[in-house]
Amino acid sequence: MEFLGDAAGLVRDLVSGVLLIAGAGFYLIGAIGLNRMPDVFTRMHATSVSDTLGLGLMFVGMLVQAGPTLIGFKLVVIFALLFLTAPIATHALARAALHDGEEPLLADEEGRLVPTDLAASFPDLEQRIESPLTSESVTAPEGGEGDGNDDDTAQQGEDRPSNS
């Protein structure tokens, strides 16, 4: 039985080692892409590798070591947080970059990379970027008069009694 326990530990170490090294490799690839890519949008594309595959493999590798314990549960919580919020952050970053007038590099007829105004190809793009999403409406309510010093967004400010 002693030998069997050792064998199980050896397999566990091997599996988690392979996962950790593979995850670190993908993480490094993402970081290299962050330096080699030509503009902001392609750099976001490169870091998504490290945020999903690199992070995922390394956390699964640590999960194999931890087993179904409280430590494993904490690992799952951290991984879920990062895994769910990384796409949101990237989406918001791309939206803010487009809103700020950042022009993505696209290939022209000869294959050179030139900054391209996307509004020429997608006529309604500018209007869509300018108009806030329904979930992030930040304009003051129509009827409200004395809410100029309220720091909350409009919907929350309406529901809550004014405290100042």
């Binding site: 090294i21 995850g23 670190a24 993480y27 970081a31 590798g61």
Partner: peptide
Amino acid sequence: AILGVLAAMAL
């Protein structure tokens, strides 16, 4: 793995 992450952090 820590060395790999540190290298990525430096980049």
